[in-house]
Simulated assay, not measured.
Amino acid sequence: MKKIILGLSAMCLIAFASCKENAAKKIDETNIAAAAERDAVATKFPVIEFDKKEHDFGEIEAKTAVETTFNYKNSGDAPLVITDIKSSCGCTVPQDWSRAPLLPGESGKFSVKFNGSGSNKVSKTITVTANTEKGSETVRITAFVKPDPNKVVKPVAAKS
């Protein structure tokens, strides 16, 4: 047993002693420069700025379709890519946005259609999914939906 331990100890000693080269000498300066450049670029994000964060349609008749356009600009340091735009419900439809990268300083737009459903004060959120630092941004539309004047109102039966 002592011979086995002695043999393993000798092999470990030889293995450690054979690594005479300093690890610091193996570092390639070009790799360091490339990594530093990559890390500097990785901290640059696009920034999406909207011309308005909320649009109020005011008073609209029930079931009346309305539409607005949200304009935005990439004020960041990297190309902006919008991957998806969704609304909080099916009565609001975002459309017509570019899926191509938007370079810093360039502008884009998308439209939002609201079908006028609901009653009284209505608010809908539109979520823009993009490669920004937060990953998503939101804008809102609001309206006051007036009751449909042609809608037949059933009278409430009186209790006796």
Rank of each mutant, 00 (worst) to 15 (best):
M1D: 09
M1L: 13
K2R: 10
K2V: 06
K3E: 10
I5L: 13
L6C: 10
L6N: 11
L6F: 13
L8R: 06
L8C: 08
L13H: 08
L13E: 08
A15W: 14
F16T: 14
A17G: 11
C19F: 14
C19N: 11
K20E: 12
E21W: 10
N22F: 07
N22K: 10
A24F: 12
K25N: 12
K25E: 13
I27D: 04
D28S: 08
T30D: 11
N31W: 07
I32C: 07
I32F: 08
I32L: 14
A36E: 15
A36Q: 15
E37V: 09
E37C: 05
R38E: 13
D39L: 15
D39Q: 12
F45W: 12
F45T: 02
F45R: 03
I48K: 01
I48D: 00
E49Q: 10
E49W: 02
F50D: 02
K53A: 13
H55K: 12
H55A: 09
D56W: 05
D56K: 07
F57G: 02
G58F: 04
G58R: 05
G58D: 06
E59A: 13
E59Q: 15
E59W: 10
E61N: 14
E61Q: 15
A62C: 14
A62N: 15
T64C: 11
V66D: 06
V66E: 08
T68F: 07
F70L: 04
F70C: 02
N71P: 07
N71Y: 15
Y72G: 01
S75I: 13
S75R: 05
G76Y: 03
D77K: 15
A78Q: 03
P79Q: 11
L80T: 01
V81W: 09
V81H: 07
I82S: 01
T83M: 08
K86E: 10
S87D: 09
S87A: 15
C89L: 07
V93R: 06
Q95N: 07
Q95T: 06
Q95D: 09
D96A: 09
D96S: 09
R99T: 14
L102Y: 00
L103K: 13
L103T: 11
P104E: 02
P104Y: 00
G105K: 03
E106F: 00
S107K: 02
K109G: 00
K109A: 02
F110N: 00
F110K: 01
S111G: 08
V112F: 02
V112R: 01
K113P: 03
F114K: 00
N115M: 10
G116M: 04
N120V: 08
K121D: 12
V122K: 03
V122S: 06
S123M: 11
K124C: 10
K124V: 12
T125H: 02
T127N: 05
T127G: 04
A130G: 05
N131H: 02
N131P: 01
T132H: 04
E133V: 08
K134G: 05
E137L: 06
T138E: 11
T138A: 10
V139N: 01
V139L: 03
R140A: 11
I141M: 03
I141S: 00
A143F: 04
F144Q: 06
F144D: 06
V145P: 00
P147Y: 06
D148C: 09
P149H: 05
N150K: 14
N150F: 10
K151S: 07
V152M: 09
V152S: 12
P155D: 09
S160N: 12
S160R: 13
